[in-house]
C-alpha cells in the first residue's frame, strides 16, 4: 500500500522543527521513528499534508542520567534502551518493557518519546511512564515546559502537546537500590497490540514497607490509566498477598476496555487484575521479597 503524497521537511534544529509545526499546525506531523505513523499512512488512515522529519536533528539521541533523572532524548530508539546494559540492570520496569514493545526490528527504529506522543491507548510506554512517574519535556516557540506524565496523557491518541510544539525528551526518575518494577504484558503474538498490560514500580523503605509505588495499565481503556486506588492501598504498607490481590482488583475496577478480537470486556478487565498482581509479585521478588 502506498501513502498519499505529502510535503517533506527535514529541519536541522529543534527551533526550525517547532517553527514548521507552528506554521502548518494540524496539517503537519512529526516523523521520528515512524513505526506507527508510516503504516497508518500506508493504509491512508493518516494523510498528513506535511511531514517534519526530525531524524537529522542533532543532539536528540542522548540517554543519560542527570539530577536524579534518566533523560531520554526524542531520537532515542527502543533498542538504545533494550541494549543498554546499565539501564537493563538497574531500571527493572524499563528493562522489561524495552523487550516487549512491538517487535525486535520495529524497536530499532521506533522511539520512546515518539511512542509517548503517539499515545496509542494500547501503547507500552505510556503505562510505563505512569508507573515510573515520568515527565515530558515539550518545546514550543515560546520556550520549554516540563509536564508530569499524568497531565501529558489527555485522551486516546491525544496529548497535551499543542500546535507548534514538539516533545524533545522523556524523563524517568533514577531508581535507587530498593526500587524495582516489572512490566507484564499479554499479547496474541509478537508485534500485536497488548491484550492488556501492567506496569509496576515500587520502592521499599528500610522497614520493608512500600515507600512509593506507581501502577499503570494499558490497553484496557481509551488511554493508559494510573491505578491510583491500588497505589493507595499499598503505599506505606508491608506487602502481603491479600493486599496485592486487593490492589490488583482496583485495576479491574477502573479498566473500561472495548471488546475486540483480543478479548471481551470481562477478559481484559480480569487481565488487568492478573497482570497488576503478577507485576507486583515480580517487582517485590526482584527486591528479595517473596510473596
Amino acid at each position: 500500500m502506498i501513502p498519499g503524497a505529502f510535503d517533506y521537511h527535514r529541519p536541522s534544529s529543534v527551533e526550525e522543527a517547532v517553527a514548521l509545526m507552528g506554521q502548518y499546525g494540524l496539517e503537519a506531523r512529526i516523523l521520528a521513528g515512524g513505526q506507527s505513523l508510516i503504516p497508518a499512512m500506508r493504509y491512508r488512515l493518516a494523510q498528513p499534508a506535511v511531514l517534519v522529519d526530525i531524524n537529522k536533528l542533532p543532539n536528540l539521541a542522548y540517554l543519560s542520567e542527570e539530577n536524579g533523572m534518566l533523560r531520554v532524548g526524542a531520537l532515542v530508539r527502543d533498542t538504545d534502551v533494550e541494549f543498554h546494559q546499565d539501564i537493563q540492570s538497574r531500571y527493572h520496569l524499563i528493562a522489561d518493557v524495552s523487550q516487549v514493545v512491538a517487535d525486535p526490528i520495529v524497536r530499532y527504529r521506533g522511539t520512546v518519546v515518539g511512542s509517548l506522543c503517539h499515545n496509542d491507548p494500547s501503547g507500552d510506554w505510556a503505562a510505563t511512564a505512569i508507573a515510573a512517574r515520568a515527565q515530558m519535556v515539550i518545546r514550543g516557540q515560546g520556550g520549554e515546559r516540563t509536564e508530569a506524565i499524568d497531565d501529558f496523557i489527555v485522551d486516546s491518541f491525544t496529548t497535551s502537546i499543542q500546535e507548534g510544539e514538539m516533545a524533545v525528551e522523556a524523563r524517568f526518575p533514577v531508581p535507587n537500590t530498593r526500587t524495582s518494577g516489572a512490566y507484564e504484558k499479554i499479547e496474541r503474538k509478537v508485534g500485536d497490540y497488548a491484550t492488556a498490560a501492567a506496569a509496576v514500580q515500587l520502592e521499599l523503605a528500610q522497614d520493608g514497607t512500600i515507600k512509593e509505588i506507581g501502577i499503570g495499565v494499558t490497553a484496557v481503556a481509551l488511554k493508559a490509566l494510573r491505578v491510583a486506588e491500588g497505589e493507595k492501598l499499598l503505599r506505606g504498607q508491608k506487602p502481603t498477598r491479600d493486599l496485592i490481590r486487593a490492589a490488583a482488583e482496583e485495576a479491574a475496577k477502573i479498566a473500561d476496555p472495548n471488546p475486540d478480537a483480543r478479548g471481551s470486556k470481562e477478559y481484559k478487565k480480569d487481565m488487568a487484575r492478573v497482570l497488576v498482581g503478577r507485576g507486583l509479585v515480580k517487582a517485590l521478588g526482584r527486591l528479595g521479597v517473596k510473596i
Binding site: R29, A40, A46, Q47, S156, T158
Partner: peptide, 10 residues
C-alpha cells in the same frame, strides 16, 4: 469534515 486525531489526518 476535517479529522485530526493522533495519526489520523484527513
Amino acid at each position: 469534515v476535517g479529522v485530526a486525531v493522533g495519526p489520523v489526518r484527513g
